[in-house]
């Protein structure tokens, strides 16, 4: 961890705010989120559906549709540039080249009317100015890299001819074609079955070493996070609630929400029939409770939590928590 800190951050997100102005009111999907991604590391983002983890990642390359979305503030420093300030043309040079994306739904993420080859070649031709022949050769190589059998044949296939796992490999090949510095994987294995999921995760880990890229990995699956991530960021209702390295998160979680998440995993060693759950539901982002958004579900909540929300505090080295009572200890008199 300490050696990680010596490395310079590849991506610095500072106080990012991405809001949606919808008919139902203002939705603060990403509210004052700050984090860094260092070179060569995998940062995992976990959280329940609708906690803003996808929007956070979409915001990095300004992929959130505006309107209804709006970047209300903050900075996204990548490679010395503020992604929120650069022109569209400069942004396009970064998308797919230095920051690449893999999305959740392999079945719909590829254009159904273009051949696989053409879709991979497109990235190379846009960013590498390759000729058609060079791009095709490179596309075959990229497919080979993600261990697709018969890449020469697959480049001439349309997406409908491939299975979900294969399509996700194509997505990975496309994302890695230009050797990006940052790969953003938005729940890349959620739609796949477990065996395929394991293969895809192994592949991503291998390729990460091969092309030396950082990964921002979003998932709601804690077992996937345990396998992939170096550090983990936990989000709740548009805010970062805990940030630490992966072992700390699993062994010594401090935010009540993280504690709830970790203890709700099925555990082989207990004899209980029922799984532990966090009571209540994810709050509606357009109608958040005052104070800490987690307070209605939190066993340790006090009046203080209902009135205000804590800052993200470094309670121990490299372990940040946004809670007045980290670890659930009640301080009397507070």
């Amino acid at each position: 961890m300490s050696e990680m800190m010596e490395k310079k951050p590849l991506l610095e997100v500072k106080n990012l705010k991405t809001y949606f102005h919808s008919a139902g009111g203002l939705v603060k999907a990403v509210d004052d989120v700050s984090f860094d991604v260092y070179e060569g590391e995998t940062l995992g983002i976990v959280g329940e559906s609708g906690c803003g983890k996808s929007i956070t990642c979409m915001s990095l390359a300004r992929l959130v549709e505006c309107p209804p979305g709006k970047y209300e503030g903050g900075e996204i420093l990548f490679d010395g540039q503020d992604m929120l300030k650069i022109s569209d043309a400069e942004l396009r040079k970064i998308r797919g080249n230095k920051i690449s994306y893999i999305f959740q739904e392999p079945m719909t993420s590829l254009n159904p009317v273009f051949k696989i080859g053409k879709q991979i070649e497109e990235v190379l031709r846009v960013h590498r100015n390759m000729s058609k022949e060079e791009a095709k050769k490179e596309a075959i190589h990229a497919l080979d890299l993600v261990r697709i059998p018969n890449p020469e044949r697959i480049v001439n296939e349309y997406p409908f001819a491939l299975s979900g796992g294969m399509r996700q490999r194509v997505m990975i090949a496309m994302a890695l074609a230009c050797s990006p510095k940052l790969l953003v994987a938005d729940e890349p294995t959620t739609a796949l079955d477990v065996t395929i999921q394991a293969q895809v995760l192994d592949l991503m880990n291998d390729l990460k070493k091969e092309i030396d890229t950082s990964i921002l990995f979003i998932t709601h699956d804690l077992s996937v996070i345990a396998e992939m991530a170096d550090r983990v960021m936990v989000m709740y209702a548009g805010k970062v609630v805990e940030l630490a390295d992966v072992n700390t998160i699993f062994e010594k979680p401090l935010h009540p929400y993280t504690i709830g998440l970790i203890s709700s995993r099925p555990d082989m060693s207990t004899t209980s029939d029922r799984l532990n759950v966090i009571p209540g539901n994810v709050p509606d982002l357009s109608d958040l409770p005052t104070g800490c958004a987690f307070n209605p579900r939190c066993p340790y909540a006090s009046d203080k939590c209902r009135e205000g929300i804590s800052e993200l505090v470094e309670v121990e080295p490299n372990h940040f928590v946004r809670c007045y009572y980290p670890g659930g200890e009640k301080h009397d008199g507070n």
């Binding site: 992929l63 994306y101 999305f103 739904e105 719909t108 993420s109 590829l110 990235v123």
Partner: peptide, 29 residues
């Protein structure tokens, strides 16, 4: 509104190409 439009944008393709090539080919059906 199809998912692959997001993919195309994330690839760094020009908005014109996204609209007239990626989207229009699908709208054509």
């Amino acid at each position: 509104s199809m998912d692959h439009i997001k993919t195309a944008r994330a690839k760094g393709v020009k908005e014109k190409t996204v609209i007239y090539s990626h989207a229009w080919r699908n709208a054509l059906l």
